[in-house]
Amino acid sequence: MTEEQSYTTEEISKLLKISKLTVYDLIKKGDLVAYRVGKQMRIDATDLEAYKRRSKQLQLPGGQRPALSHPSGAVSVAETRESGNAAAAHLSDNSAPLSRPTSEASHVVPGDSPIAHAARHVVITGQDVSLDILMRHMEKQTRDIRPLRSFMGSLDGLISMYRGESDLVSTHLLDGDTGEYNLPYIRKILIGWSYVVVNLLSRPAGLYVGRGNPRGLQGWADLNQPDLRLANREKGSGARVLLDEQLRLHGIPSSRLVGYNMEETSHMGVAAKVSSGEADVGIGIEKAARLVGQVDFIPLTQERYDLVMLKKPGNEAWTDSVLRILQSSEFRQELQAFEGYDVSRTGEILYEI
């Protein structure tokens, strides 16, 4: 084994026989040293061996294995989350890697690690470009935090927050019975936690259809058309919840939609399926339709895209910083550059407990 050899997170999960989510958690907590090349996280063979040696040194008599400890005294919970709860069943090993928005490889080494500089990782879930802008502002304003991205859907993000695996969650989940976004889900999932919900933006959501709208789709009720081919999103995403709620409210069985069980993991992926003619319709946001091209967009709702941050000891400094960023004119001006983004409530605290 040489110093030049390195592994992807997927290879590490196979070597250690653990899920990729656990690998990302080890990286997040500093137990496993990693660096980023482009969009891919890498772990050197020497760092993997060092992690294994530390694990063996911490092995207790009788086979009991403790959580790994950081030099600062913070304890990793990576190995204590296996039991979980019923809601955790929604989480998937297919979640994208945690990453920082930089084009250069940023190697985290023992002498220059976030721990050495008392910096902490802040895991942000979601896919919207507004989160990239937020992360850039966070990195610029303080050296005490290192924002990481996890590209999971809204519902999975809330569940990961409940489990202590995410720090800042973006969510756009419609409750069909009340017409309210996000708060009904947040209240049910984050039981026992203190948190604050703040608006990031609002944006149009609706139907992707082929150019000229050949099936003549105008509203949710039109999804009852026979032999309609759907490009669907993955379970746990806001777009999937929006679709399922509208099908329920309009009494349309999901089995009526051809391709309902075939899932794409992004708005762009859904729009591309419609653009190529592989699907007649998809659910998503307007921005993806413009980026993909050759697809029309039918707006049906204005969805509220909110952020959730936990209120707990040690979080005050970075949560206050995020609120200042969201409420700044500079941040709002950057968001306004994207057509369709409504920033009239950006930075407004919607709920706090």
Results as ranks from 00 to 15, higher is better:
residue 96 A to W: 11
residue 28 K to L: 00
residue 43 I to M: 11
residue 20 K to A: 01
residue 79 E to N: 14
residue 343 V to N: 05
residue 236 G to D: 12
residue 113 S to E: 03
residue 321 S to M: 14
residue 253 P to H: 05
residue 349 I to W: 08
residue 227 D to K: 08
residue 294 Q to C: 09
residue 303 E to Y: 01
residue 145 I to S: 03
residue 203 R to Q: 15
residue 92 S to M: 06
residue 255 S to P: 01
residue 42 R to V: 00
residue 104 E to L: 11
residue 90 H to I: 13
residue 134 L to D: 08
residue 197 V to I: 15
residue 211 R to P: 13
residue 2 T to W: 14
residue 34 A to P: 00
residue 340 G to A: 08
residue 207 L to N: 03
residue 346 T to Q: 07
residue 45 A to K: 02
residue 104 E to D: 06
residue 100 R to P: 10
residue 49 E to L: 11
residue 201 L to F: 09
residue 172 H to R: 05
residue 342 D to N: 14
residue 155 L to K: 03
residue 172 H to P: 07
residue 193 W to D: 02
residue 110 P to A: 04
residue 168 L to D: 03
residue 16 L to P: 03
residue 278 E to Y: 10
residue 159 I to A: 04
residue 218 Q to A: 14
residue 190 L to G: 08
residue 178 T to D: 09
residue 24 Y to W: 04
residue 221 A to F: 02
residue 353 I to G: 01
residue 277 G to E: 05
residue 13 S to R: 04
residue 265 T to Q: 06
residue 219 G to L: 06
residue 329 S to T: 15
residue 252 I to S: 08
residue 51 Y to T: 04
residue 347 G to Q: 04
residue 281 V to F: 07
residue 300 L to W: 04
residue 229 R to K: 14
residue 161 M to L: 08
residue 130 S to E: 09
residue 137 H to K: 04
residue 131 L to Y: 03
residue 288 A to M: 13
residue 70 H to M: 12
residue 79 E to I: 03
residue 268 M to F: 13
residue 334 E to Y: 05
residue 144 D to A: 11
residue 98 L to W: 04
residue 105 A to R: 15
residue 213 N to S: 10
residue 249 L to A: 15
residue 144 D to T: 14
residue 196 V to K: 14
residue 291 L to D: 09
residue 255 S to W: 07
residue 142 T to L: 12
residue 268 M to H: 10
residue 160 S to L: 12
residue 309 M to G: 15
residue 191 I to V: 14
residue 217 L to K: 00
residue 290 R to T: 10
residue 276 S to K: 12
residue 220 W to N: 07
residue 247 L to F: 04
residue 34 A to T: 05
residue 19 S to K: 08
residue 214 P to D: 02
residue 121 H to D: 12
residue 70 H to A: 13
residue 14 K to M: 08
residue 172 H to T: 11
residue 263 E to S: 04
residue 266 S to Y: 01
residue 13 S to W: 06
residue 221 A to K: 11
residue 192 G to C: 04
residue 345 R to I: 13
residue 215 R to D: 01
residue 50 A to T: 03
residue 192 G to T: 02
residue 266 S to C: 04
residue 257 L to E: 02
residue 102 T to N: 14
residue 59 Q to I: 09
residue 86 A to I: 12
residue 269 G to V: 01
residue 40 Q to P: 00
residue 47 D to Q: 10
residue 179 G to W: 09
residue 145 I to P: 02
residue 122 V to Q: 07
residue 47 D to P: 00
residue 262 M to G: 01
residue 340 G to K: 07
residue 3 E to W: 14
residue 138 M to P: 13
residue 226 P to K: 02
residue 305 Y to Q: 08
residue 31 D to N: 02
residue 214 P to V: 05
residue 155 L to S: 00
residue 86 A to C: 12
residue 162 Y to Q: 15
residue 317 A to H: 15
residue 175 D to R: 02
residue 118 A to T: 13
residue 197 V to F: 06
residue 279 A to I: 03
residue 222 D to M: 09
residue 343 V to T: 15
residue 283 I to W: 11
residue 184 P to Y: 01
